[in-house]
Design a protein around this nucleic acid. Structure first.
Lengths: 155, 155
DNA sequence: CGACAGGGTTTGATTTTCCTACTCACCGAC
DNA sequence: GTCGGTGAGTAGGAAAATCAAACCCTGTCG
């Protein structure tokens, strides 16, 4: 009788996707990071319906990814700025862009240039040892009561 | 009369999100990368309804992220393996995990250990110059006909 | 034989999304 | 002063996606 409703795996990836894991959230963040911060422009550039955009913006503000700031009074108008947490999602966008460019066979419309003059290609390294992270060099450890890597553990 | 339906910004981030930008796709991929590759186990660990999971798995196979492979005949049973393209999404999961751990105030249930013995903390560097990518050191360039960084350009 | 495992499909209710139109507050031109 | 435009949404209703639970099919085990 204890196993009434099996819960999914507790996981911070799932938590993060609860915030940005839908069709528009990351596109909205992309726009704000591009400097496009007003409702109408975000709606146009992402293609999000206006009511959905209203809901997403509210959710992202509540989650601390965006901040809603008035930029004029009379009439009061707001813009949406990425917070620190929002800016820390930029690498996720960069990786998705690179993955999309590599695997989705579209002409890459967007190039990100690094200060050094090169087009950005991300190299993901271990902060501790400096080595590039490769397939197989990273091992997940999963120690949550009642769970293993494979799934829930019966006691 | 030409501007009947304004298209959203063409962007490989949007293309990538067309494949993995929903509630379950990346959780399904997470499971396959954890070694959980069978329908029932993926359904249990992600919490996805079975019919939705069926649809997602099909979409991910079509997109070339997963591969559907029989692991026995009589009765034939399938498992889902990440392809090369699927494995290349692992860094996205790693970044989402780190972001979730940092900003969503849950005990991090999952630790990824690098070969060097340290818990993985990703450092994202420019492949060309080796410097760590920082806020402000990356500039998007957007050269698509009819578009600028800010939005569509009227001609 | 009946029970179970694995991988789904079906059904019907609930929830979200989408599209179009409308509002409200103000500004600037006529 | 009122007409038109801008910015940021709301409102209404149709269409699509999601959800939970039950069902199905193939084959194996006891």
């Amino acid at each position: 009788m204890t196993a009434s409703k099996p819960q999914p795996r507790p996981c911070s990836i799932a938590d993060a996707l609860g915030v940005v894991g839908d069709k528009y959230a990351l596109l909205v963040l992309r726009e704000t990071l591009f400097g496009v911060r007003r409702f109408d422009a975000i709606a146009r550039n992402t293609g999000a319906p206006r009511d959905i955009l209203t809901a997403r913006l509210r959710k992202l503000v509540e989650a601390g990814v965006l901040e809603k700031v008035p930029y004029q009074d009379r009439p009061v108008r707001y813009e949406y700025l990425p917070t620190k947490a929002g800016r820390e999602l930029q690498p996720v966008l960069l990786l998705l862009k690179e993955w999309g460019d590599r695997h989705l066979a579209q002409t890459p419309p967007l190039v990100w240039e690094h200060d050094c003059g090169a087009d950005v290609s991300a190299r993901i390294c271990c902060r501790a040892c400096g080595e590039e992270l490769r397939r197989g060099s990273v091992t997940p450890h999963y120690q949550v009561p009642g769970w293993s890597l494979a799934g829930p553990v019966e006691e």
